[in-house]
Computed example of a mutant assay.
Amino acid sequence: MSDRLPPLTALRAFDAAARHMSFAHAAKELNVTPAALSFQIKSLEEHLGQPLFKRLNRAVELTEAGRALAPGAADGFQTLTEAWRAARRLQDNTSLTVTAGPALTAKWLAPRLYDFARQHPDIDLSFSATLRMVDLRRDDVDVAIRFGYGPDEGLYSVQVRKEWLTPVMSPEVAEQFPTPESLTKAPLIFDDSIAFLRPPCDWATWFRAVGVQHNPEHGTHFSNADHAVDAAVAGVGAVLGRRAMIIKDLQEGRLVAPFKTAIESTGRFRFLCLPGVEERPQVKAFRDWFVSEIDKTAHISDEFDIIPVEDVSPA
């Protein structure tokens, strides 16, 4: 029995029909007539020497041979699609798709993108604001910016500065709670998006850093960091805000950080792409801009006594 592969068009017709379990729907997907698709599948069955589908009255079912072929056919066309997409990207030096979390996109990236666009008018930049795990080999994404720990095996990774956290609030709320001790009576806002950090970067940890024994459990909880920061801007209370999420609101006076003690997390932002992709002109331009924008506000860290979270975690 020969292992010579049948024509690719016949395998493609089979793959579509196996996914839809309908010749009509598969023909529509491939933009061919049902008769043409049926002919392709019939030729594939003749090449194999046995049927791949049971033709029922108003439906089709895979035979045992069809069930054996379907997964490999699907995987094969997926692999071909990924390879073709990767090859086409090598010729594209103007389009760039970046994925980042919704909070970072809203609070840090979006306010700065005018500057990048002005510097690089030839780059068409697209953003996908999501925390969904992406596969840079499969998904139509060039760069991922993620916060945490990884793992980042098999990827080009640039780790930027660690994040520190400090209480921030509106100027009006700050007037009511002028000391760390008084903050124990303040309405507190919780950013639950960082609950995964170890050791924890929570209110209890910050209070220990300033010598106050207080483990607050009640307050307003948000699953997104930007929503928690926006609540603080609106005067709801104080939030233990991450540097990247609060920096612009601090600079523009919507928030104040009255206590100059911050805790430094073990997590950090990473710039991620496939190995070799970092040398593509638009990716390199975005990476350099991203790092330089972070460095522009590095001096603000000098205003705080930044304590590594490991130094104030419970024994």
Rank of each mutant, 00 (worst) to 15 (best):
S2F: 08
D3I: 11
R4L: 07
L5S: 06
F14Q: 03
A16P: 00
A17K: 03
M21H: 13
M21G: 14
L30P: 06
N31F: 14
A35L: 13
A35N: 11
S38G: 11
F39C: 14
I41N: 01
K42M: 12
E46Q: 10
Q50I: 14
L56W: 03
N57F: 05
E64R: 12
G66C: 05
R67Y: 15
A68P: 14
A68F: 15
G72L: 15
A74C: 10
F77N: 12
Q78P: 09
Q78T: 13
A83Q: 10
W84R: 14
R85S: 06
R85V: 03
N93A: 13
T97N: 08
A100D: 01
A106H: 04
L113G: 11
Y114I: 15
R118H: 15
Q119Y: 11
P121T: 13
P121D: 13
D122P: 04
L125S: 10
S128G: 11
S128D: 15
M133L: 15
D140C: 07
V141N: 00
R146G: 07
F147E: 03
F147V: 04
Q159G: 12
Q159C: 10
K162I: 15
W164S: 06
P167R: 00
V168P: 00
S170Q: 04
V173I: 15
F177S: 01
L183F: 01
K185N: 09
A186V: 05
P187E: 03
D191I: 02
P200N: 06
P200K: 02
T205Y: 01
W206V: 02
A209K: 01
S223P: 12
S223Y: 11
A225D: 08
A228F: 02
D230I: 05
A231G: 02
V233E: 05
G235I: 04
V236F: 07
V236K: 02
G237L: 03
M245H: 14
K248L: 14
D249K: 11
L250Q: 08
R254I: 15
L255R: 01
V256L: 10
A257L: 10
A262R: 01
I263M: 02
I263R: 03
F269K: 05
F271Q: 01
L272T: 05
C273Y: 01
G276N: 10
V277S: 11
R280V: 03
V283Y: 00
F286H: 03
S292D: 14
H299L: 14
I300M: 13
I300N: 09
D302R: 06
D305M: 13
I307S: 00
